[in-house]
Amino acid sequence: GGYEVPNRLRTLHNLVIQYASQGRYEVAVPLCKQALEDLEKSSGHDHPDVATMLNILALVYRDQNKYKEATHLLNDALAIREKTLGKDHPAVAATLNNLAVLFGKRGKYKEAEPLCKRALGIREKVLGRSHPDVAKQLNNLALLCLNQAKYDEVEYYYKRALEIFESKLGGDDPSVARTKNNLATCYLKQGKFKDAETLYKEILTRAHEKEFGSVNNDNKPIWMHAEEREESKSKQKDSGPYVEYGSWYKACKVDSPTVNTTLKSLGALYRRQGKLEAAETLEECATKSR
């Protein structure tokens, strides 16, 4: 509170973003550096405007994959914000998070983790334990732990994030499916295939129901068709084209990147179990919705 980004910084930010999006970094970077110099002259180094400007330049470096330079700038911005806004300010949490992301991009998960945890602590304190921003932070923390094969922690963080998203944003929010998908990845890494399968089916059922209403005998999600096709395979050799399955086309029309990934992942699980017809059904559906 109290501080607002001045208009000239906003304008500059927009300009820098425009240049950066065109790949014109040779223009964007000097522009930022000049602005930084001017700000430091007029306001001194320890000023929120300087911190904001450092963040803008860090973004440009990040887009150029210059993670070390970006990290250096964010550390500087962090120190200014802690001094000027206080240690428990949301801006401090955001900067800590982005520092963690930069370390993560360099594969330095161990270094990233404590930064992410500090960001989480601040957000919990400022926003309460079940705010969606807390869940987002938990997601980042889980991913850092996943990369370090700390699966118990990953599960704990994803489950907490899932609870928050479900209760605050509702079961149909894309964050829910995305987090379930991430949790399933963690299950797969541990060989908990049944748990992963359950989650994938939940995602597909939910997406189907959102689009076409409650599941019943005439309205089944794609994985049920896939399993039925698998079962009927043994009874009649050639099960024929998909058209036979009344609502197949309906089932196949549920479309989102997460659903698509889920179709492929559940397909791979079926394949592991030797359920090739079921696997093919899902894989074909995934290809179609591409």
């Binding site: 998070n97 982005n98 993560g104 991009k105 987002k136 996943l146 990934t261």
Partner: peptide, 20 residues
């Protein structure tokens, strides 16, 4: 495909750092 799933997961940048 499992790789495909994990590749999709990316650390999320917080854009609010520019609004403070």
């Amino acid at each position: 495909d499992q790789q495909g799933t994990s590749r999709q997961q990316q650390l999320e940048w917080d854009d609010s750092t520019l609004t403070y």
